[in-house]
């Protein structure tokens, strides 16, 4: 069974984000980039599926600039078989991204199309379900783990205050959240092997963004907090402040 995983290159979760001089971009100096954390869960799920089945190909797809090669190589080093880099602009219009990815995915032969539930840069949480709708495939979002049985997948998903088990017909789009399996680290052997794996680079289909970025700003600094006191003796004062000053209880 073939699996496609869409991954995105984003700033490392530790990165300090500063708005650059243009006011619409971030200052990239000193920032490390990496595969978006949820996408790493999706790659891990795909690799486990392949290992359990003993057959099938795992293909990674990214829309981005040529620096995304590094992210794809990391996925290949984890164990994916091949990668496709669609070179083009990434905007804050998730539908534009989804259309570009859908155009590529439509022609690919796979039973499962895995996404992260959200990309750690734009936090839109939308591209996966959009690709599902655009390609006419059913989609389950927020999947922490799944099993494949014949023509269906049984997905465990988290919902408000509970959980669900959803059965979906294949081929399907699944948007992965954190699951029981930590994404593996690439071993040296994997890194060496990745260098020889196919990485196809081609221009992305263009879908203009209909979301205009007017400006980017850093969050308003929270007013300097206050240490109310030490130990349990500080509690009455804390409760008073929460009631009278913060109006929070």
């Amino acid at each position: 069974m073939n699996v496609i995983v869409c991954i995105k290159r984003v700033p490392d979760t530790e990165a300090r984000i500063r708005v650059d001089g243009s006011g619409t971009g971030i200052d990239k100096t000193g920032i490390k980039f990496d595969m978006s954390p949820y996408d790493a869960f999706a790659v891990e799920a795909a690799l486990r599926l392949k290992e359990a089945a003993g057959e099938g190909d795992v293909t990674l797809v990214t829309l981005g600039d040529s620096s995304s090669q590094e992210t794809l190589r990391k996925g290949l080093a984890m164990g994916a078989d091949r990668a496709v880099l669609l070179t083009g602009d990434v905007s804050l219009d998730g539908l534009s991204t989804a259309k570009t990815l859908a155009a590529e995915l439509d022609g690919m032969d796979a039973e499962l199309f895995l996404f992260g539930v959200k990309a750690a840069d734009d936090d839109q949480q939308q591209v996966g379900p959009m690709v599902g709708a655009l390609t006419g495939r059913p989609c389950v979002s927020g999947v922490s783990r799944f099993e494949v049985n014949g023509g269906t997948a049984t997905c465990h998903r988290e919902v408000e205050g509970g959980s669900e088990v959803v059965e979906v017909d294949l081929p399907a789009v699944l948007c992965m959240t954190k699951g029981p399996n930590e994404p593996r680290l690439a071993a040296l052997k994997g890194i060496m092997a990745a260098k020889k794996k196919p990485l196809e680079e081609k221009p992305a289909a263009e879908n203009p963004s209909r979301v205009r970025l007017v400006g980017l700003s850093e969050p308003p600094a929270r007013a300097a907090g206050r240490i109310v006191g030490e130990g349990a003796d500080a509690v009455p004062e804390l409760v008073r402040l929460l009631r009278e000053e913060a109006n929070a209880i």
Partner: peptide, 15 residues
Amino acid sequence: RPVFSGKAFANLEID
């Protein structure tokens, strides 16, 4: 809307 996990905010116009 918050972006980069709330480390920045984007002002957007929807066309």
